[in-house]
Design a binder for these strands. Structure first.
Length: 523
RNA sequence: GGUGGUGUAGCUCAGCUGGUUAGAGCACGGCACUCAUAAUGCCGGGGUCGGCGGUUCAAGUCCGCCCACCACUACCA
């Protein structure tokens, strides 16, 4: 909101096609989507990327097990993530797949650049390898049961010895630490930053970045017996999508990324390997990696074996899309773990969306409809003390109608990815508006002071417009509907437009409820 | 074991660099109102701010120790 138009690049992880989309995928992308929408509404130039990670031995084996060609297999599974994006109403500008040609080109180019810079050497790797985890384990980590050896994660391991290219990660330890020091906001939240830094301090070893044990991956340039390590492959997607290696391409203006949204399980790859790769290649590093927490389901850890995986599509079917979007970001501070409780979702939907916001809109608009011939009253010339207090509380810096502080505060919070705090703030204002209408009693004023009644309703309309606008990134469909009811023109729904009051006399359509409440029999 | 973090009303949590009677939402009780999706507003009950000790004129807010839980990481039988 500072005025100048910035290029903003936001990403989700590319999701591994081994899995069906679940609440975790939906959550990460949702956060990115809300921020992307907010920045667009602020007038910035936004690029929002999501996609699928399709290489690796696990995928190769899964395809094989189905008797399918890996490309065909990933075509199918990738589709379910595209569908999720559509159903969740994500506004992604691109959807990348690592099996695409453009990506293979980018990976090869990055590899060659690293190689030219002397960051890669050929060695060999041997050790206990778990296909399921795509990871090697030390001999001391292996447990044996019934003749089969297992990793600490429970994945079966096998002894693998193969030639491998290595990335000189060990050379980057001090540079990484200096980088973290110089960029204290690079890893968020802070507690994750501490973890990463202490991990790096404990020592980094060179990273094996190629495999010869399977074929389904990006071929190493000049040595096609090798495919690239999945994480080198996967991380590169963020620059592939901007046209790398062509740094003159228009999209390249978006690099470096503003925020890489990731789950806490893959923070290490993004906060250690990725900046190391980039620095080694002489490319700018992203501004921030934000690691969010995990959801539990009614207090229980979510796992496939427990069968309590949360399907976002089922939630949408039951509660509606926007209440689900709202709940996920409202309920839990972004970055912390959260517990998904049906009761809590119903409480938010009924109490905050339907009762506080929806009902405020409905009562206000009904009064205008009935007592102002359905047209918008004029902007208020002489606000009372109560009006001024109200305008201040609901985000208007002054009676002139500039919606300064609420928008700016929300902007500041969203720039730190504090979605829950932003929503808390907005709903405090909404509560304030309910207090105002109850105190001013426009329904009584219609018998005693029509002019005053019109002023009160105008103020409420202005406040609702602010609420609908700042909530639009969180609940796009429903807030568009509210803005329709408020008769805010389509071209006047961004943040800058809030400083221009709607003209008097605009015709308002008859209101209808925005949110459907859930009647739960259970307490 | 190491490192980091958390522990504040029944529940979920705010409380920046220490400073008047510790806050919010939900839940609960009472009152008011009736424009509105039986919605809303106001008032209230309820907290030894994990425990002990210390620094200070003054400590949820700083220091030490202890307890519980969480995260990352190491390791041992």
């Amino acid at each position: 909101m500072t005025g100048e138009r910035r290029s903003i690049y936001l990403t989700t992880p590319i999701y591994y096609v081994n899995d069906k989309p679940h609440i975790g995928h939906a959550y990460t992308s949702l956060a990115a989507d809300v921020l992307a929408r907010w920045h667009r509404m602020s007038g910035h130039d936004v690029h929002f990327l999501t996609g699928t990670d399709e290489h690796g031995q696990k995928v190769e084996k899964a395809a094989e097990a189905r008797g399918m060609d890996p490309q065909l297999f990933t075509d199918t599974v990738s589709q379910s993530f595209r569908e999720l994006a559509v159903r969740m109403n994500y506004s992604n500008d691109d959807f990348i797949r690592t099996s695409e040609e453009r990506h293979k080109r980018a990976c090869a180019a990055l590899w060659q650049r690293l190689e030219a810079n002397g960051e890669i050497y050929l060695g060999h790797y041997e050790g206990w390898y778990a296909v399921r985890d795509e990871a090697f384990y030390g001999p001391d980590e292996i447990m044996e049961k019934d003749g089969q050896k297992f990793a600490p994660t429970g994945a079966p391991v096998e002894w693998v010895r193969e030639p491998s290219y290595f990335f000189r990660l060990s050379q980057w330890q001090e540079k990484l630490l200096a980088f973290y020091e110089a960029n204290p906001d690079f890893i968020a939240p802070q507690t994750r930053r501490n973890e990463v830094m202490s991990f790096v301090k404990s020592g980094l070893t060179d990273l094996s970045i190629s495999r010869t044990s399977f074929k389904w991956g990006v071929k190493v340039p000049g040595d096609e017996a090798h495919v690239m390590y999945v994480w080198l492959d996967a991380l590169t997607n963020y620059i592939t999508a901007l046209g790398y290696p062509s740094e003159t391409e228009a999209l390249w203006r978006f690099w470096p990324a503003d925020v890489h949204f990731v789950g806490k399980d893959i923070l290490r790859f993004h906060a250690i390997y990725w900046p190391a790769f980039l620095m080694a290649a002489g490319l700018p590093t992203p501004r921030r990696v934000f690691a969010h927490g995990w959801w539990t389901n009614e207090g229980q850890k979510i796992s496939k074996s427990l069968g309590n995986v949360i399907d976002p599509l089922a939630l949408i079917d039951e509660f509606g899309l926007d209440p689900v979007r709202f709940f996920l970001l409202r309920e839990v501070p972004f970055g912390q773990d959260g517990d998904f409780q049906r009761k809590a979702l119903v409480g938010r939907l009924n109490g905050e969306l339907a009762d506080a916001l929806g009902n405020l809109a409905n009562r206000t608009l009904s009064l205008i409809q009935r007592n102002c011939e359905g047209t918008l009253p004029a902007p208020v010339a002489a606000p009372t003390e109560a009006d001024t207090a109200f305008l201040t509380a609901t985000g208007h810096a002054d009676a002139a109608g500039s919606p300064a502080w609420l928008v700016e505060k929300v902007d500041a919070l969203l720039n730190e990815q504090k979605f829950d705090a932003a929503l808390t703030l907005i709903f405090t204002s909404i509560r304030e508006a309910n207090g105002y209408i109850t105190r001013e009693q426009p329904w009584a004023l219609k018998k005693t002071d029509l002019a005053r009644m019109r002023d009160v309703l105008r103020h409420l309309h202005d406040a609702l417009r602010v609420f609908a606008t700042v909530l639009r990134p969180f609940m796009p469909e429903t807030m568009e509907k509210l803005l329709d009811q408020l008769a805010v023109p389509a071209g006047a729904r961004d943040l800058a437009a809030l400083t221009t009051p709607l003209p008097e006399g605009v015709a308002l359509p008859p209101p209808s409820p925005l949110f459907q409440k859930i009647q739960d029999a259970a307490a």
